[in-house]
């Protein structure tokens, strides 16, 4: 390898970094969503759903605990095959809501939302066309994901500030020392 080829390689590297910098500088100012998979509108619905599954009280609810963040993160990762279902079903959930209640889901009051979701869970809307998905089974999946986001380890994007452990009065991080000294 001669010295010139090294310098050329460095140039290529530098150019690539430079081009990257310029490209990113170009993005500056354009509105970006905090989420990867969910649009701001979808995230708003998931926020509302998360608060229904785990309502806020003296401890954070699903929304505040970052459940939506958990779901979004997993939909772009381990659960990526479920992203199309989420997109379709969130749309359908809102459409059915408008048909039945004449309002968007997020515009319903808390108790009406609960009632609607109980109907979904009970299978009342399973005959409706949710873009090929079944309403109640989507709800089951979502329920599971909310529980994981709220009660799972914070490293996956939910359970902000370890809130669920504190709620359950579980020491976390553990208070267990070594054996001898």
């Amino acid at each position: 390898m001669n010295p010139k080829s090294i310098s050329r390689r460095n140039f290529i590297k530098m150019s690539a970094i430079g081009a990257g910098c310029l490209y990113i500088a170009g993005c500056a100012g354009s509105p970006v969503s905090y989420h990867y998979i969910l649009t701001p509108w979808e995230a708003e619905i998931v926020d509302a759903l998360a608060d229904q599954i785990i309502p806020p009280d003296e401890y954070a609810g699903g929304r505040e605990a970052g459940v939506t963040n958990y779901i979004d993160k997993q939909l772009s990762g381990f659960f990526n095959e479920q992203a199309p279902m989420y997109k379709a079903c969130l749309k359908a959930l809102d459409e059915t809501c408008k048909e039945v209640y004449g309002k968007e889901f997020t515009a319903l009051d808390f108790d009406t939302q609960t009632e609607y979701l109980e109907d979904i869970q009970g299978g009342k809307y399973n005959s409706a066309d949710w873009y090929g998905y079944t309403a109640s089974s989507f709800f089951g999946t979502l329920r599971g994901h909310c529980m994981q986001g709220f009660y799972g380890s914070p490293r996956h994007g939910g359970n902000k500030n370890f809130v669920s452990y504190r709620m359950m009065k579980l020491d976390y991080p553990y208070l267990v020392g070594r054996n001898v000294h």
């Binding site: 430079g18 910098c21 310029l22 990113i24 500088a25 993005c27 500056a28 100012g29 970006v32």
Partner: peptide, 17 residues
């Protein structure tokens, strides 16, 4: 561009991602 980049406030550079 590198030094211009580094001189910008972070909301125009790092935090634009």
């Amino acid at each position: 561009s590198y030094s211009y980049w580094n001189s910008l406030p972070p909301d125009r550079t790092c935090a634009s991602c």
